[in-house]
Design a protein around this nucleic acid. Structure first.
Lengths: 190, 190, 190, 190
DNA sequence: GATGAATGAGCGTTCATTCAT
DNA sequence: TATGAATGAACGCTCATTCAT
């Protein structure tokens, strides 16, 4: 009855990561419980000990992906300019090193666009946007960036650009690096 | 003569559009031949008169979506600046009016990132990028834009931004409009 | 209403022969109306002008195969011994030259063993057996064969052997020739 | 270890036998996975737990039928003459008691004549022929049969006759008995 | 924790057949 | 005669899920 609360968390994470890899390779379209199980070497039935339904597994995947994106909320030292740069650079490095993660991220985003009632993604995006906005506000106030910049507007543009970049992560990681540089130049007024 | 291309094109297009709607709503993940047939009011078996396999239907959907994106290659009158503006504005208007199309577009993009051997999307993106590059080159040469702009770099950034925007089309169309404005200001050097 | 009586018999025969070829290659198991149509270059729907159902097509195939087997009822000149020899030799030659025909023949035989109520095959076999019996009776009476032979029994054995041979026709035609020789020697008392 | 061979063999055999019965009744032409499942009272999907594809089920049926034919390789006591008699009699008894088995056997034989690349049937037939040949050679050497007999030739004739008999097993079991007697008389030189 | 066995629902696809033209 | 378009029924197979052990 209450016996589903103390599972081996290592195993569980292993399964979530396996699911993640499969989604990166084949999309949600190609996600099969049995394949996840096989990748970890357990029986498909055992999956249901950890995740009561496939949808719940997907929830865990979502949480895992968002957790991996903690670089977006990590604090960095230095001026706001340095911080924004560090923020964007960490993002780029992650895209380059783990493009699969961003493929899954994009899948989640598309999926959340369909299910009107899934606040997880919206919450995630909102807090990310807030962080960038604050950084920009502070930076503008301290004279690091021109004060004609609209922090909300620029934050949104950054996020949209980063989302587009995520789609390209596995195909053209190179492009992303230079686009980020371009973006930073623009924000700084060249 | 060896006859398999001679079907009623209206019906065929109707089916492709129906498939498109379903993909917009539920993703490739949720695409069912039966549902497409039902949406048009025909027997599922009839689908196979028009499309020998589900994958072929998806090919047609891809072609249809790319054809709908012909706004990206449409010529516009006026200065390069006007032309780029028209280009981006047409894109925005399409995103606002037919957000589903961009959901499908994003699905196709993600799918093409998986199937290494599908050049369709890459070809499409390349010709789009070329068009923007040419526009920028001409505009820079004619003094409409500062000559420190790197046309290739800016073109890529525009495309990435537009791809990110496509992901948001059905959720926040408003954001896209102002991001495009922001982008244009940056390109023009404020 | 009465308009299905004067079809082009050439076309019809062509279709029956095409069906026959396909059955020889893939068995009844692999017989498809559309394949028969394709082999002759007509639309599958047109098949139904000639044969109202698939089963009727099969009936025609059965008749065709039995008609091809008319060698079994053909009269030959000479002594009964010569006649039996000619009979068996014609059979062997047909097996060697058109093994597919015997594959279809075997399929028909198996099929008729299932459908208890299909007298066509039984009738065919009976009249074949009768012919051989008569030949043997005459030959024994005229002293060509030893009179301890039981004509009915030998006739049945010949037929069974020939049926077995039909099964081997496409694989080992050579074997059949020497088995027939063996059989003739036995009948003649070495 | 890599586990796919560890199922309940009773259930598996039960399914193979059920498939066999259906093939005997309706041929490969009429074999349906659903029907096999229904005959045993299980869900059609469960079939795929035991046999990954229909073709694999058919492979098992083939093996099963050949295994049932082990009477052909069974050793018998007594003189070569006694042994051959026992051999043919066991065959006859099996045809009489389980005619369905021989219907399936004939189906398999026809099928193997189509699929050029299926050595199973050929192997089976070869080892059967060898056995008879050896028996005849020994018998001739020991003076049980006339030495003008060609063992290879006679063995082939026996096999062909037996194959023809198999086709008749379900229709005229009586005929087979007397044909075998006829054959034995011939071999012994009356 | 883990598994073998089983299931129900459904999916992509096939195929004999129909019918208006 | 012939065909393009359509259909209903069914088929092989998949997959999430269950459950006793």
């Amino acid at each position: 009855m209450s016996g589903s609360e103390n599972q081996n968390p290592d195993r569980k994470n292993e399964l979530v990561r396996a699911a993640c890899e499969i989604i990166a390779l084949k999309g949600f379209e190609g996600l099969r419980i049995r394949d996840v199980a096989a990748q970890v070497g357990i029986n498909p039935a055992t999956m249901y000990y950890y995740f009561q339904t496939k949808e719940i597994l997907i929830d865990y995947v979502t949480d895992y992906v968002f957790a991996q994106m903690d670089i977006l909320t990590e604090e960095a030292p230095g001026t706001p300019r340095d911080q924004l740069h560090a923020h964007l650079f960490r993002l780029y490095r992650k895209m380059r090193d783990e493009p699969g993660l961003f493929a899954v991220f994009a899948e989640i985003q598309l999926r959340s666009g369909r299910n009107v009632s899934s606040p997880k993604y919206i919450d995630f995006e909102n807090s990310w946007r807030h962080k960038i906005e604050l950084l920009l506000q502070t930076g503008i106030k301290q004279g690091y960036w021109p004060n004609y910049l609209d922090p909300e507007q620029v934050a949104i543009t950054i996020i949209i650009l980063m989302q587009g970049a995520g789609l390209q992560a596995s195909t053209y990681p190179r492009r992303i690096e230079s686009s980020i540089a371009q973006l930073e130049r623009w924000i700084s007024g060249k």
